[in-house]
């Protein structure tokens, strides 16, 4: 069996008395786009920092490509952590050349990458003259140097305008389609949902849950139904194959739809069955709500 691209076992890190990361474990198979979702200060950057050897963990271990971490393995990883970091007095191109030298990968990619992130016209300007958005774009270009097999992105759309955000997300999806494994940390639910296939939810250094985005952040539309006789309603609904799950909540039934249906059609079907609804409403489960539910559950 192919070893996972990344395997993390019980990683912990404390700053003083504060536990930044607490017994964190994770496995990421090749080609997965995994989001680490958590509020600010939840341990996302600490985790990524440890994986890149710039932060030392107190305990636990991790393996890249099934091997003990090393600088040579790190050259197969492209990373963008927190704010972009470059030599301010060097131009974009010269900064990328240093990275190419470190990664041992040659300079031929540089022009293409600068073009990809839309910095070609400013490639010879000093880094310190760049706007925040341009800095972020250069950081993304640097993460893509040397055709990495894994991409680590920490809040990659930070500081970008809406158009830039859309472009970068598009770019990440394109890269993901090429089979690159991506680990993306974000506090934006919407971002993780749009980009990732898998998600880990992190809060106060603890893993709260993980799985496929479609499961963990279940966003299939559902219908709220209520009638005088809930049992009868339920058995009628179970007869048809429109729903993936039916459950009772606050005196009504919540039924998750497999596909979109018109409420009128559903109502007509139930009337034909002799059931008269006293409540029918379509609802889209709010991911935000789920996320915050999960976080507040940890608080209690």
């Amino acid at each position: 069996m192919e070893s996972p691209v990344l395997e993390i076992n019980n990683l912990s890190k404390a700053y003083g008395g504060l536990k930044a990361l607490d017994q964190f474990s994770l496995k990421i198979p090749k080609g997965e786009i995994c989001g680490i979702l958590g509020p600010n200060g939840s341990g996302k950057t600490t985790t990524l920092g440890i994986l890149l050897d710039i932060i030392k963990s107190d305990s636990g271990e991790y393996y890249w490509f099934g091997q003990h971490p090393s600088d040579i393995l790190r050259r197969r990883i492209g990373a963008l952590l927190e704010a972009p970091i470059f030599y301010p007095y060097l131009s974009g191109v010269r900064n990328l050349k240093i990275i190419a030298d470190i990664k041992d990968c040659g300079y031929d990619q540089i022009d293409h990458l600068l073009d990809l992130v839309g910095l070609t016209s400013r490639k010879n300007s000093k880094y310190k003259t760049f706007s925040l958005g341009m800095k972020q774009r250069l950081a993304i270009a640097s993460a893509l140097m040397g055709d990495p097999e894994v991409l680590i992105l920490d809040e990659p759309t930070n500081g970008l305008d809406p158009k830039g955000i859309a472009e970068i997300r598009e770019l990440i999806l394109d890269i993901g389609k090429k089979g690159v494994t991506i680990l993306l940390a974000s506090h934006l639910l919407d971002e993780v949902q749009k980009v990732c296939t898998h998600v880990v939810i992190l809060d106060k250094g603890k893993k709260l849950g993980d799985g496929k985005v479609s499961q963990v952040l279940n966003d299939s539309p559902s219908v709220e139904l209520a009638a005088d006789n809930l049992d009868q309603l339920r058995s009628s609904l179970e007869e048809i194959s429109w729903f993936s799950e039916i459950r009772e909540e606050d005196g009504m039934l919540i039924a998750h739809l497999k596909q979109e249906i018109a409420p009128g059609e559903l109502n007509k079907f139930l009337v034909d069955q002799g059931i008269y609804l006293n409540h029918l409403a379509m609802r889209k489960q709010s991911l935000e709500k789920y996320f915050f539910n999960l976080l507040s559950g940890n608080d209690a």
Partner: peptide, 17 residues
Amino acid sequence: TFRTVRQNVMNGMSRTD
């Protein structure tokens, strides 16, 4: 101060290098 040592290590330079 530029935090570039971080970036160098992240990009695949060992600390001893």
